[in-house]
Design a protein around this nucleic acid. Structure first.
Lengths: 234, 234
DNA sequence: ACATTTGTTATGTAGTACATAAATACTAAA
DNA sequence: TTTAGTATTTATGTACTACATAACAAATGT
């Protein structure tokens, strides 16, 4: 019973500041009134008064929502509800330097999962023009020396995401890239997979979806080998 | 030349508010000084004075960083740098109700990509205990009536992410789930794939990684059929 | 009818004042 | 001398006032 009481005493400390509370309350309010993007919000003074807080605290909470793109404000028009850029907010905290090692590793794996799962979408959406562009990228990189390797890696894989026609997915990949690169730099010198970019293009041209999956796996094999060595990241 | 001047005139409008600028400046500052988590930051008044702004504006910017978990403050100790919870911020804006339809569709596809890409990680990390738990989930759902269908869907696929041992991936999946469900409700009645959860468990037990990939694809086939119908979501 | 000026209003910014909690210094008792 | 308790200091949290600024509206002049 004593432990039960303890856990009961420990959870609700809630050293929340007013701004934290107001932020939540505003969220609830926006949802409850089911505002649609473009709708006008009450003015600051009204909100502050209704909540029984100073305009100062209210503005700290509003500042957060504004950062997330949930609201937009103009001098006279007041505030309006907006569509948040879901990835924009994510981007702000996705800095390899401030992320702990476990999460870094997780993100590294996340990107591998994405690459391996692309095949189905690719085979639904790919066009001849896409393949042609992809081939050009692959052709170009054969001539380049090794210093351009990372650049062409990015170009090639980036184009793959491009083909899916999924903007969110593509932006997500772009955001994950620095983290991916960072983890790689922590390792020894890079090793190429047995399947090259050019090989992958050929598969896309004439092969089946299953061929491509096998090809992509071989292409990323060095990375998977790395995972196998660690086995579990915790 | 005229167009060149125009573009030059259009870019720098920067209707940014002070808080926006200060937020960026603080970010740069934290990076430049390469603070480590736990390090103490200067006090508010010092920062405000150094930036030549009022404490009010500074606090609006700090409020944002505090929301992201980048800094923590205590009454006397001042502020310290913290590790942001990268997904926590993401969660705040990932509400099906405020996301536009294109992005909803993108996220739906994103989850499909993840599921399809899980196989490699699963076969690296899976243990007998995992399979057993997964089998129990699958067994249970056969007896349940259809109203529990979504619940068991979540339990089963959630366990799959669990097996990867990747916390970030798992949390990410949990966050994506409501959006996924929401898109499904926009469609007609659900149709089961030809490969059941039980089938997938059997493959995990005795089959190869490639078997599992094919199985998972068949399991998700109804969703892919849906994508094929739209072909491109733009 | 159109251009210009003036006024109104809501947000943006600055500054002051005080409350509160936490760390430190200090004091008194054992 | 150690310890318990108190006072002080200090940085953040909250409130309030004041004014600048931009955008829109109304009024005015041509």
């Amino acid at each position: 019973m004593a432990t039960n009481d303890l856990s009961k005493d420990l959870t609700p400390i809630s050293s929340n500041t007013m701004a934290d509370v107001v932020e939540v309350r505003l969220r609830e309010y926006l949802k409850k009134k089911s505002f649609r993007p473009g709708d006008a919000l009450p003015k600051e003074l009204e909100l502050a008064e209704a909540l029984g807080i100073s305009r100062n605290v209210l503005r700290e909470a509003l500042s957060r929502l504004r950062m997330l793109g949930m609201i937009e404000t103009k001098k006279k028009r007041g505030m309006i509800l907006a569509r948040p850029d879901i990835l924009g907010t994510f981007e702000r905290v996705l800095d390899p330097l401030i992320i702990d090692n476990n999460t870094l590793q997780d993100i590294f794996e996340l990107r591998l999962v994405l690459e391996m799962g692309l095949a189905d979408l690719l085979y639904i959406r790919k066009t001849d023009k896409d393949i042609e562009e992809l081939e050009n990228i692959a052709k170009k990189e054969v001539k380049q020396d090794d210093s351009f390797r990372i650049k062409s890696e990015i170009a090639f894989h980036g184009k793959l995401y491009d083909i899916t026609g999924n903007d969110t997915l593509k932006r997500f990949q772009i955001m994950l890239m620095p983290t991916f690169e960072y983890v790689l730099t922590l390792e020894k010198k890079p090793i190429r997979g047995k399947v090259s970019h050019m090989d992958l293009v050929q598969i896309l041209k004439t092969g089946t979806k299953e061929d491509f999956k096998i090809g992509m796996q071989a292409h990323l094999q060095p990375h998977f080998d790395r995972l196998n060595k660690i086995k579990t990241n915790k």
